[in-house]
Design a binder for these strands. Structure first.
Lengths: 195, 195
DNA sequence: TCAATATACGGAACACAGTTCCGTTTGCCA
DNA sequence: TGGCAAACGGAACTGTGTTCCGTATATTGA
């Protein structure tokens, strides 16, 4: 569904040069717009900024979720890859889990509206949901397993549920000085620990 | 902003009978619609169900938030009043806090879309936000103070922040069997406890 | 270099929900 | 019962997502 390559190699028939150029431009403009206006920024605004028609956006990114995924793919990958690394370098699995969750939270709270979109049950965000889950649940699962094996946490904590809870706690952070998502998530992870 | 009385007493000039009747009807229809379609049900749908024009809804309830508050006012009051009662009847302040939060969570997870609306930064939900906060923050504060005084929790937990976190955790509950908001909130409250 | 053609583009048009506004109706009181 | 303030209904306006199709153009083969 989301295919950003095709700059040279790969099998697909290879896209036209203007199409590739537009896709590139759109990714850049969207990234900037997400920062200034949140991921809910109107499609028309992005189109206008990029100097293309709305049709062009929809052709490249059939749903808003596809655009969001494309913009943040690198960062999500980095987060996913940090999981095993932290597990190897931390003093205990629970510490690794806490650090990894911190990474995830830092990512979410700096993306205006992303946490909201991630939890939305709107069908338009299905792809977004699926991508994050596919990529991060296995990593989280690994960390939870390790912590459970070490007897640090109860073995019945589900990775999906934990990520969902953490994502929920990040909603509204970043535009409300009285709410500190990091602190709340910290409490949640503390609560996970056995004694 | 929200005035539902005027059936007889009070000072205001007293409303016309048809107006009072419509308000009553709208509250009933809205309550039913909120259950079947969530608090985001289109205004037109409520109007059609009630057999009135949309203008009539807006006249009685200037914003959707006013309608939601009117529908759930009794339950919120009950929740607020349960705070001191639980504090008096529980074994420890932390236990009272946990029970009270459970009450709040039970309320939220059974109202499709309410938790989302509560955290939305959409200006239309300002009234909703304000009402819940005005009514519940002081109660939560009292419980937190008592628990802190008993040395059960850290004294720097802010009631607003805790309620916000709990509200966030309730988002998406009730339409996702894989996510148990009660469990997540339980972890949060556990994490609050010192040792 | 020059058609021919598939590919991509732009933006008008449509769908849908919130909200406003005003001509019409109706309850109330003298 | 007549007059009027109060309330009503719903058409119309706004903003946003999404679709669709006539037009433009990159690419390719001759």
């Amino acid at each position: 569904m989301v295919d950003i390559d095709n700059g040279s190699g790969s099998s697909a028939p290879r896209k036209r040069a203007d199409a590739r150029r537009n896709e590139e431009t759109l990714l850049g403009v969207a990234a900037a717009a997400f920062i200034t206006s949140g991921v809910d920024v109107p499609v028309r605004d992005i189109a206008a900024q990029a100097g293309v028609g709305v049709g062009t956006i929809y052709r490249h990114f059939p749903t808003r979720a596809d655009l969001i995924v494309a913009v943040y793919r690198h960062q999500v990958e980095a987060c996913a890859e940090a999981g095993p690394a932290l597990l190897a370098s931390s003093s205990t699995p629970h510490a690794a889990l806490a650090l990894w969750i911190d990474l995830f939270v830092d990512f979410l709270v700096t993306k205006h509206g992303l946490a909201e979109a991630l939890q939305s049950d709107d069908a338009a965000f299905e792809t977004l949901h699926a991508y994050f889950l596919d990529r991060l649940v296995p990593v989280c699962d690994q960390l939870l397993d390790a912590a459970a094996a070490a007897g640090e946490i109860s073995p019945d904590m589900d990775a999906y549920q934990l990520l969902r809870g953490v994502g929920n706690l990040c909603i509204g952070a970043g535009n409300n000085p009285r709410y500190d998502a990091r602190r709340m998530v910290g409490l949640l992870i503390t609560g996970l620990r056995l004694h």
